[in-house]
Design a protein around this nucleic acid. Structure first.
Lengths: 160, 160
DNA sequence: TCCATTTCATATGTACACATATGATAGTGC
DNA sequence: GCACTATCATATGTGTACATATGAAATGGA
């Protein structure tokens, strides 16, 4: 009867058979990946609102902060610190260097390496926006009360 | 003395002055956005490991599941359901249609609209992978114990 | 020392994510 | 019925994110 008559119907009947098979209940909204993607989208949106004047992206700011904290690092090192693969960090570095927020120079001891250093304007940008960075976190966590925020950050850190 | 001698030094001294200014303590690892990005990367990685055979991405699977659940939807509708903007859903739709997992057809009542329907092979893919989808969520949440998982999902849902 | 392995930067291609712009169409207020 | 506005799909450009491949250089072990 209704045994998947693919030839005659143009589209699969999306509801036929599901109940018969015991309706595999799979709600998109219950999947962590989906929720993480949404939450990350939201966090990125809040970030770019707050950083509109500086026009740096979340990962660009992350890279700048890490270079500031660590001093001079190689590209791959920075990639590991900020969790970006070599191909990704390449692009980030290139754009930051193009804006003269960082500079690249060859490593003395290892001729494969490109070392990175923050420029004074890069350092200025970081120092002027660190407070804003904290506010991004605050605003992103605003839907949670203080206790929930701590719990959430703790659990989230376990999932990285 | 060491008051930001930009002209003479090639790079800004990343540690000078920080303590003097009271060291604005901004740890990248404490920022929600950074943690969410990391967690999402990890979840995506787990997803693609589990879905290696089907070669669908997380958002492609999300789109397929939603079309299955909702029946026929327009592109923009689907975008809203899966939280993708029109430009993004365009590409996702195009790739799914190219693999004949969904089909597109003009809407009778609204000539601007493109309606979407899942094909029998798309439906087959969803039904054969729903269990795997659940396992992705399980494995992603594995570092948390059952109580923590429920708490985490509840809080995460508040941040979307 | 020599060779195999690893690491580093780089290049290319695919796929999200979003800003912005466009043209066609629909809906609305008047 | 008509202008105004909104919505729909589409196009383009920039920026992550990652797989894969490459060549140069460093490193490790026999």
């Amino acid at each position: 009867m209704s045994t998947n008559n693919h030839v005659l119907v143009e589209f699969a009947d999306t509801h036929d058979g599901k109940e018969a098979e015991g309706l595999v209940d799979y709600r998109l909204e219950d999947q962590v990946g989906f929720l993480l993607r949404r939450a990350h989208q939201r966090a990125s949106g809040i970030f770019s609102e707050h950083f509109r004047d500086s026009s740096v992206s979340p990962v660009q700011f992350a890279a700048l902060v890490k270079i500031r904290d660590e001093g001079r690092v190689s590209q791959n090192q920075l990639g590991r610190l900020t969790h970006m693969d070599p191909a990704t960090i390449m692009g980030v570095i290139k754009r930051l260097a193009a804006r003269d927020l960082i500079r690249r120079y060859p490593d003395a001891g290892d001729r494969r390496r490109m070392m990175l250093g923050i420029t004074s304007s890069g350092l200025k940008l970081v120092e002027e926006h660190v407070e804003m960075g904290r506010r991004v976190t605050e605003d992103t966590l605003a839907p949670l009360d203080p206790g929930e925020r701590a719990t959430f950050l703790e659990l989230l850190a376990k999932l990285t």
